[in-house]
Design a protein around this nucleic acid. Structure first.
Lengths: 291, 291
DNA sequence: CTATACTATAGGGAGCGTCTATGATGGATC
DNA sequence: GATCCATCATAGACGCTCCCTATAGTATAG
């Protein structure tokens, strides 16, 4: 019946010159695309490509189909744009957990801007604030901590990580992989006030008889990192924070973890499809960042 | 993803003004179409139709989609025509069994001509001749007798029928539903030379001691019917022949049947899709004729 | 208030699009 | 000329989703 996906396969083969690359471009396996083209050819009763082992070239019938096939794809694109029309002015609102590295947020913003039409709004906030905004439909997607409890939101976990110490690179214990709380008794500490495990951290130290004094309290991870590198003190942060001049040894017996992922409403008035694409972009970006 | 079938559903709703008729036009059940439109609306994140119980009307977004959607369908049609281009000059060759009523052939020819682009060739012939032509790829489809044996051809049975007598409406036995061979001893008979069960018929009579004389021999069913109505004699024909001035009582204990259907090659160089459409048209036409 | 016409929802079944694994083919290389 | 590499085709299994029937919900008409 010459369905849309077949048109895409066909155009991909033309554009990439062979089946394998075309398949990759369509996000399908090579045999899938092979079958797809065969189906088109069966449908039309005539070959569309002349296959040689070196390259694939259009037959006469294929050449006649090429331009109209592009017209098909173009008309689809036009139709999809037409209906968005008004909706395009509604910005996509992304919430990002405050305790996500600034570079990550930057990368996310760049990728979304480049690969998606329409305006973008980024909101930072703590876990609870983001959750609340989502619940009230003030956000479309949030990159935040995902809990097993399903609290009425869709969610897609992306990765889990622990928390570890942040030490200046010239700290005496900087090269150690694991450090016990007791060894840090003499160190000043920097308080990241927005930290999700702040109370757990403080309990961890007090339970081991360590009562450090606090050299700084800040809401900004960037500043906290600055303080650490300046030798002002040590702190505990999610593993994903990395910077030159700073090492990240484990804090012994501190096993808290967080799972970051995307949370979103499924009952949105916004386009499901746009949402899905944005989610895909986000998740791909993060995948790329954590490796 | 806004697939092609969804575009068709959408346009059908616009054209028919309600979901139920649109579904019928698309050959799907109403819930199917309902879900399809819902899927489009979910995909776009906005309603396309305003439903009232009396009619459905386009929303603003739906109205924006309407024209581009038609463009999509048009571009598909154009693409499909483009690739046929050369193939369109090859006529579709239909074989029709000689013992199929002339009105049927006429109806078939008309339907195919109206609903299908390209030239048409109709060949009449006996069962064996048609089969031979099919085998040699001199025919695309044949409306003929289908046997359970699968002799390398695809086939689609359409209906089975028996054979019965054909009597002039003013024949003394015309109102009877069943007549025994013996009762026809004094009648003249018309020989339809092309009849598939000619030898079985003649044996049926001779075995019962009836040796009628033959008032006419013809290859034309139309003429045979004319002779019957003129009172020249009686004959045996497939049940499907019906005409004013002629009745069709059963011949007692004559239980032969034939199954008419479509036979075709599956390994054709011709377009599978065109073939499938032609077969669908044919089978629909016959369905309509036999009721 | 019943009857009618229409759309939405639920749940099961089947077709087909997709996958992985494997085969087949032909050009390049030593 | 044997081997390797790149390419497309085929086979069989899996799983998604399109489609169905049955049913509910809702508004208009008589």
């Amino acid at each position: 019946m010459m369905d849309r996906y077949l048109v895409r396969y066909f155009l991909a083969v033309i554009d990439h010159g062979n089946f394998s690359k075309a398949a990759a471009a369509c996000n399908v396996a090579q045999p899938t695309l092979s079958v797809g083209i065969a189906k088109l050819e069966r449908g039309f009763g005539t070959p569309l490509f002349r296959r040689s082992n070196r390259r694939v070239e259009l037959t006469a019938a294929g050449a006649r189909l090429a331009a109209p096939a592009r017209a098909v794809e173009a008309s689809f694109a036009q139709a999809e744009n037409a209906v968005r029309g008004s909706a395009a002015s509604v910005p996509l609102r992304i919430g990002v957990l405050s305790t996500v590295p600034a570079e990550w947020v930057e990368a996310i913003a760049r990728r979304l801007n480049d690969n998606r039409p329409g305006r973008l709004e980024i909101v930072e906030g703590g876990e609870r604030a983001l959750h609340e905004r989502l619940r009230r439909a003030r956000l479309d997607i949030a990159l935040t901590i995902i809990h097993p409890s399903v609290d009425r939101l869709e969610s897609e976990p992306l990765f889990s990580e622990g928390y570890s110490l942040a030490l200046s690179a010239d700290h005496p214990l900087a090269r150690r992989t694991t450090i016990a709380a007791e060894e840090l008794a003499e160190n000043a500490m920097i308080v990241r006030r927005q930290c999700e495990v702040l109370s757990e951290t403080s309990r961890h130290f007090t339970e081991r008889g360590v009562r450090p004094h606090f050299s700084a309290r800040t809401n900004s991870d960037l500043r906290a990192i600055g303080y650490v590198r300046a030798g002002l003190g040590v702190t505990v942060m999610p593993d994903c924070f990395q910077a030159d001049g700073m090492t990240r040894p484990k804090l012994e017996d501190f096993h808290h973890t967080r799972t970051l992922g995307l949370a979103y409403r499924s009952d949105l008035d916004r386009s499901q499809e746009e949402l899905a694409r944005s989610i895909a972009i986000l998740s791909e970006t993060i995948d790329h960042l954590i490796r």
